[in-house]
Design a protein around this nucleic acid. Structure first.
Length: 483
RNA sequence: GUCCCCAUCGUCUAGAGGUUAGGACAGCGGGUUUUCAUCCCGCCAACAGGAGUUCGAUUCUCCUUGGGGAUACCA
């Protein structure tokens, strides 16, 4: 059997962690099996749809760097891949079900429906949902009302008795009493658009989807899908319900847990490689004793059996660690390219890439997020604003001593060869000894003078980047600042 | 309320009848170091509970408890 899987997002919001995780698992499964990964746009909700979200979808996957084999933008043999372009197909099939007696027209309006809901909520009834009011309508009567222009939806007839069972490749056999299946869900809305359930089943069938991999929140709709497949006489695809992704408090991951949309992660300086690697490991394992994988490795290693059944909590701290790991794996040139947009956004426009290139080794191990680069490198672009005097004073020393040290450093620096860091350090160590202070005590006021902070990238390298002249100027300025 | 799914350190997980229950993140404590970071070493920390099955259960079965999800003309 051909392996064909799909990611079928609804463009009613920006791409978020949960969706992208589902997409990634589908993609990895397809790749691991030599199958096809399809993108299908489920734009059936006209009230929430926006072209902005479609744009966001493409941008997101461009950034992440993995792609579908068939989809709206590249076409394919099972197109079109946008549901609004398949409009006629859904009505045709909904009406087919009506003709077969498996579905029916319902004329209940919003008002009646909400009245039912309110009543059910009030007396804690175990009976929830539609009361099947129109199910018994004679077809002739329904046809007449339809002909008179009355608005209607088409609802699926869920059997009143018996059970529906299906197999989940991960969870095993699942059996539902039909009375517990959502009573007669709407297939075709009154605006003529299909609901998710109809469009999903019809498209999965005609696109020859072999495996449906989606989050576990979809389990309750699986039985009604099965009832539809059976009504149509179609063979359903294999089902695999993926463990959900939860926030720190254990509920479904959402905005209130922090960043959830992928573009937020991008803006905050996460690397796509890190995000992909981390996300792949939510509810899935690949190989023992290893945490870092390339996308290609994940493709080769993915196995459905290694999927977990239990939901996974999204851990920003672990993702941060991954991000740092991936930043450290970048070459100087790669890192420059990654960091540049963030520097530009902060107003640090480099005229000289060589300087940036040389600066990368200074910040690489210190960076957890690309976003941190501007602050960390600010002193290379702008004259630092000098902090309070105490910041300059090493432990157990006083202002006077700090001034002396700065003066000494300013006088001494021009004689150093900053092109040779080791030699410069040796020279400074000797100078510290001559001055009768610990090496670290000499360096601290110098560090604050040069970088504006007690915490900074390596000093000698920094001074080398700035050049002797600018470095001495900063030392002098700091000395004046303290006096 | 009802139905469904799930259950190993705080978190992500390994484990598929016999293990000192392993790793990673976080936390804590050391070491290296011009600060910070990196890196290295160490420590802390789990089989939800109760019945079975078995010579033996983290592992199989059932129950309880706990968590999550679904109950829309949203997906």
């Amino acid at each position: 059997m051909d392996i064909r899987v799909r990611y079928a997002p609804s463009p009613t919001g920006n791409q978020h962690i949960g969706g992208v995780r589902t997409a990634l698992i589908n993609y990895l499964f397809a790749r691991s099996k030599g199958g096809v990964f399809i993108l299908r746009l489920e734009d059936t909700d006209q009230t929430r749809y926006s072209g902005e979200y479609v744009k966001n979808l493409y941008e997101t996957f461009d950034w992440l760097g993995f792609r579908w084999d068939e989809g709206p933008d590249i076409g394919g043999p099972a197109g079109p891949y946008v549901q609004s372009e398949r409009f006629a197909l859904y009505r045709e099939h909904a009406e087919k079900l009506v003709a077969m007696g498996q579905a029916y027209y319902c004329f209940c309006d919003e008002e009646r429906l909400s009245t039912i809901r309110a009543a059910q909520a009030k007396d804690d009834s175990s009976e929830m949902g539609y009361d099947r009011h129109c199910r018994g309508l004679e077809p002739i009567v329904a046809a007449a009302r339809l002909a008179s222009g009355e608005k209607a939806v088409i609802r699926l007839k869920i059997p009143l008795e018996g059970t529906t069972k299906f197999h989940d490749a991960l969870l095993g056999d699942i059996e539902w009493k039909n009375e517990d299946v959502s009573p007669d869900p709407v297939l075709l809305k009154s605006d003529g658009f299909p609901t998710y359930h109809l469009a999903n089943v019809v498209d999965d069938h005609f696109m020859r989807i072999s495996h449906v991999m989606r989050a576990q929140e979809w389990i309750p709709s699986a039985p009604m899908h099965m009832i539809m497949y059976k009504a149509f006489g179609w063979t359903p695809p294999e089902l695999i319900h993926l463990p959900m992704v939860l926030g720190q408090d254990g509920s479904k991951l959402s905005k209130r847990h922090g960043a959830t949309s992928v573009n937020e992660f991008r803006k905050n300086g996460y690397l796509p490689d890190a995000l992909i690697n981390y996300i792949a490991h939510l509810g899935c394992s690949f190989e023992e004793g290893r945490d870092i994988f390339t996308l290609g490795e994940l493709e080769g290693l993915f196995k459905v059996e290694k999927l977990n059944k239990a939901p996974a909590v999204f851990d920003y701290q672990k993702l941060e660690w991954y991000n740092g790991q991936y930043i450290r794996m970048k070459s100087d040139a790669e890192l420059v390219a990654l960091v540049k947009p963030f520097l530009a956004e902060a107003g640090f426009v480099s005229t000289n890439d060589a300087v940036l290139l040389a600066a990368m080794p200074l910040v690489r191990e210190r960076l957890h997020f690309l976003k941190d680069a501007p602050d960390m490198m600010r002193y290379l672009f702008k004259e630092p604003t000098l902090p309070a005097k105490e910041e300059f004073i090493p432990k157990k020393l006083d202002v006077g001593r700090a001034i002396e040290l700065l003066a000494a450093a300013a006088a001494f620096l021009p004689s150093c060869d900053l092109a040779n860091i080791e030699a410069a350090e040796t020279a400074f160590r000797a100078e510290a000894e001559r001055l009768g202070v610990k090496f670290g005590d000499l360096m601290m006021p110098v560090r604050v003078a040069i970088t504006g902070s007690r915490v900074s990238p390596p000093l000698f390298e920094s001074m080398a980047l700035l050049g002797v002249e600018r470095s001495v100027a900063r030392l002098e300025k700091a000395r004046a600042h303290l006096s």
